[in-house]
Design a protein around this nucleic acid. Structure first.
Lengths: 120, 120
DNA sequence: ATTATAGTTGAATATATGTTCAACTATAAG
DNA sequence: CTTATAGTTGAACATATATTCAACTATAAT
C-alpha cells in the first residue's frame, strides 16, 4: 500500500476511498460556517433563550428572569445570537425586545429532539 | 411593577409573559441533552468527519488523511462521536471502520446548510 | 437637571475543550 | 518470538468561551 502523499502522520490505507472522499468534500469555508451555526445552538443558556423566544418576543430583563440569570449574561448571549443572525430586536422606550429571526432554528431543534428521543 | 421573586439581578417587567414562558419551558435536562448534541456538531473537525462518513464508512487512518490531521486527534474525536451515539464502528483485522449511526445527523446538516444559504 | 431603570460592553476570571505527545494495546506478518 | 502497523488513551498545553463585575449609555419620570 502506498505511503502517504497528504499532510498526515499515518498511511493511506484505502487510496481510492480517500481520494474520492476528498474530491466530494464541501469547501472548508462551508464547514466553518456550519460549525459556527451549531456552536451557537450548543450552549444550554442560548438554547433556553431560543426556546423562550420561540414562545414570545421578550425584553432582556424578562429573559433573565425566565432563566434565573443575570441581565449582563443574557445580554452578552443575545449579542452573540444577534451577530449570528439568529435573533433580531426592536427597541421600545427603555426596553429592547428580542425575537427569533430565523425559522430554521425551530426545525433544527425539532430534529435535535428526535435524536434525543431516539437515543434513550 | 412587582419586584423580582426569582433568583435574578433585575426586575420582572412583564410578569404574565415571564410566568407563562416559565410554565411552558421544557425541563433543564432536555436543554442539556440538546445543547450537548449540537455541541458535537459545532466543531469543524467533527463536522468534516461526519461529512466524510456520510459518503463512506472509513478507517481511522483514511479519515486522518482525508482531513490532513493526526491519527490521534481523529481517534479522540471519533471517541467523542461514538460516546454521543452519532457514529458506530466495526473492527476488521487491525483496522476499525467507522460509520454514521444516526440518520438525524444528515437531516440536521441539511437544515444548517439552508440556514447558511439563507444568511448570505 | 436629577434620579432610576433597561440594556450594553470590555476586562478579568474560570472553565471547557481540541490537539499534541508519548506510551500503550491489539492484530498481522515474517 | 519479533517487528510493524492500526488504533486508543491520559496528560499537558493552548485556545475558546461563558459568566461576573464594574462602568457605561439611553430613555423615562419626577
Amino acid at each position: 500500500m502506498s505511503k502517504n502523499e497528504f499532510i498526515c502522520d499515518c498511511n493511506v490505507i484505502h487510496k481510492d476511498v480517500v481520494e474520492s472522499t476528498i474530491k466530494n468534500m464541501p469547501d472548508a469555508d462551508i464547514f466553518n460556517k456550519l460549525a459556527d451555526f451549531f456552536k451557537i445552538l450548543g450552549d444550554t443558556t442560548r438554547a433556553k433563550i431560543l426556546s423562550a423566544l420561540d414562545q414570545n418576543e421578550m425584553c432582556v430583563c424578562d429573559i433573565a428572569n425566565v432563566l434565573g440569570m443575570s441581565k449582563s449574561s443574557i445580554s452578552h448571549q443575545l449579542g452573540t445570537l444577534r451577530r449570528s443572525g439568529i435573533v433580531k430586536c426592536r427597541k421600545q422606550g427603555k426596553e429592547v425586545f428580542y425575537m427569533l429571526d430565523d425559522d430554521h432554528v425551530q426545525k433544527v431543534f425539532e430534529i435535535g429532539m428526535e435524536h434525543i428521543e431516539h437515543r434513550k
